[in-house]
Amino acid sequence: MNSFPGTGYEGKNWTEFMEGIWERNPVFVMVLGMCPTLAVTVSAINSISMGLATTFVMAASCWLVSLLRHQIPKEVRIATYIVIIATFVTVVDYAIQAISLDMYEALGAYIQLIVANCLVLGRAEAHAARNAPLPAALNGLGMGLGFTLGLVMIGGVREILGAGTLLGFSLFGANFQPWVVMVLPPGGFFVMGGWLLVFALVRARRERAAVAAQET
């Protein structure tokens, strides 16, 4: 899939971008960064904010890592990546405080903990350090958006069942009975498990179709 003979650079970049959104979705396929995934997804808006914060950190740090990749000696590369990632996390931390304090309270320590998200460091090490700045940033952006997508899919379900709303809009009227378990930590595991099941089903079906196609 990686070689597109004759096609321009766009197709390549598009692949880089789309990889994180579907093919290797960080939440449902790579199953990375589970700590924020399970902790902050009590509502769709929290998921979006957390996802976008991570997206920014990923895109920016992948870009900077890629820019500096010829300067960074391999002995100190991890330290350098962490410093770069921590920088952008701090930037996001300030930005969220400036945008909305309520959101900052709701996300709590998980903003600062983006530093420790293995997804970010993993992409910096495995992808950004070996690619030019543009594809690296695009791949980081795609991964981040894929992460956001995963978070929103979990957060949306939890909000709909746990509060009867989606993005704050009431779906079932005032009489809705909230499913308390959905906004508690076990709800995160239930919904996550449910989605993983759906993805596994889709994959199994595809593989079966691929095998069938090969044989005919």
Binding site: L64, T80, I84, T87, F88, T90, Q97
Partner: peptide, 22 residues
């Protein structure tokens, strides 16, 4: 040298964003 350079860049970014958002 590299670590110093990286730290310098990062320091500038952090201070800048702090000043803007304060």
């Amino acid at each position: 040298r590299t670590l110093g350079l990286v730290s310098l860049i990062c320091g500038l970014i952090i201070v800048g964003s702090f000043e803007i958002t304060l």
